[in-house]
Nucleic acid binder design. Structure first.
Lengths: 171, 171
DNA sequence: ATGAACCTTGCCATGATGGGAAGGTCAAGC
DNA sequence: GCTTGACCTTCCCATCATGGCAAGGTTCAT
């Protein structure tokens, strides 16, 4: 229940300037699990509105930003695209949202996952069949190559393009 | 058994120049299922050695190249990376290969698929649990957002980075 | 002669992420 | 005071397989 909020400053215990004036990007990174690189990137995507700066130009994060970063992290871990996460963050911060709109996004993503899992399982089945048939010895004869070369009765039918399902993680 | 080899020239039945002097890239594309763009790309990757040209500079493909393209297509459909496919093509054309080396590549890819499928299934399970809990109505209260915000007992533990398993399809 | 349907090369975009360069800032230790 | 090291800043480039588009050449049919 209690959010784990280690107050020690970053890796070392050295607060850079004024003690509790907000977290630096490195500290925000350790506390959110999002890399500094990505925190800056998310800012350009508009996911963190109006990040404060210190006099020296360093970014400065408060509890609110940290929480948003943790939200993004969790959503990424569930495989949502940044576009979807942008929507989700918007809904999260909108008191007049409907749970239906959130559910719709989640369901679409779940459907997408299901489709990709299915496609990958089909590949896997074919592969495992071929691997099972292959002696794996010093001789050149290989049913795997035979299948790829089309010189064997194909074990499975290539249905869907790899690009769609493996390489284009989200539409 | 018989390889489907439609001999009609490309979409229309119009052989461009000399009747049977080899296929143009567009014809090679239709017969292999690989786009012309990708055929050129594979050539730069060194997968098609020494493609002949006509007097006008057009590429010209014989049965050998078409077969290689079909091989590549099939391997892509099984989810192999281009690096793996380069290896496989090399082995295919090497009479002194061992089936063990082919099997090793296939097994590594199968293992990779298994890892990714597992990770995606974990995401899917978490998502489906959350979706099940969400009313999906006009009210703002939403267990999905609660979970993402960390303000609920998390349903699953985010173990592996999305990047590794969803966005970086192959190593 | 014009247009259609091909072909050529070359550049740019995708999506999420990392790597690295070149340079600014700040505190601690000599 | 000066150096060192650990931060921070911005900007550019790379990944991977693929598509899109542009500018221009070729060939053939109307």
């Amino acid at each position: 229940m209690a959010i784990v909020r280690v107050v020690s400053a970053h890796t070392t215990g050295k607060p850079h300037t004024l003690a509790s004036s907000g977290l630096s990007i490195g500290e925000a990174a350790t506390q959110s699990g999002v890399s500094a690189k990505m925190i800056r990137h998310y800012e350009t995507l508009g996911l963190l509105s109006g990040v404060a700066r210190r006099n020296n130009g360093y970014r400065q994060y408060g509890p609110r930003e940290i929480h948003t970063l943790q939200f993004i992290k969790r959503a990424r871990d569930l495989g949502f695209s940044m576009a979807e996460i942008a929507e989700l963050v918007g809904l999260w911060q909108n008191r007049r949202r409907t749970s239906a709109s959130v559910k719709r996004i989640a369901q679409a993503h779940a459907d997408d996952l299901a489709r990709r899992i299915e496609a990958m399982q089909a590949m896997q089945q074919t592969l495992l069949s071929l691997i099972r048939c292959c002696q794996g010895d010093h001789r050149p004869d290989c049913p795997i190559l035979d299948d790829l070369a089309g010189s064997a009765s194909p074990i499975a039918h290539p249905v869907c393009s790899t690009k769609e399902l493996l390489h284009q993680p989200r539409p």
